[in-house]
């Protein structure tokens, strides 16, 4: 299913960086953002045309704010579109995402180098 979904995405969503075999990623987090999007699509949260529109919107917004549009920032827009989509579909508010981001930051700070970084309830209390 994964591969079929990925191929669908690659043909339905403009601009996904790819080679002959399909999508390619510059950094691991890009693949993680892509994977979450595939999973949410498979859950029926949105259609690819909805996703393409949300992404285009995010890119337009970034360009208006001076994004150089070299392709290097493609997945930054993708991530922003994903956060927005999750909020618009009522899955999680921007505040929840932000709070969780801060908790991860806190978890990072208290985790000695070399240990797995794990989130604890107490990370949310700062």
């Amino acid at each position: 299913m994964t591969n079929a979904t990925a191929m669908q995405a690659a043909s339905a969503v403009p601009g996904i960086p790819q080679d002959d075999d399909g999508p390619v990623f510059r950094e691991p987090w890009e693949a993680q953002a892509f994977a979450m999007t595939l999973a949410l699509y498979d859950r029926g949260l949105f259609t690819w045309s909805e996703w393409a529109a949300a992404l285009a919107d995010e890119i337009k917004r970034a360009q208006a704010a001076g994004d150089p549009d070299t392709g290097e920032t493609y997945y930054s827009h993708w991530l922003a579109a994903l956060e927005r989509m999750v909020a618009e579909k009522g899955v999680a508010t921007a505040q929840t995402l932000h709070r969780t981001r801060d908790a991860w930051d806190h978890a990072c700070d208290r985790t000695p180098h070399g240990q797995p970084i794990e989130l604890r309830a107490s990370d949310f209390h700062d």
């Binding site: 953002a33 979450m36 991530l79 969780t100 908790a103 930051d105 970084i117």
Partner: peptide
Amino acid sequence: HSELSETQLRVRALETV
């Protein structure tokens, strides 16, 4: 301490939620 970039933090937050 460990470190994650701003982007990595946001990706982790999304995955967690």
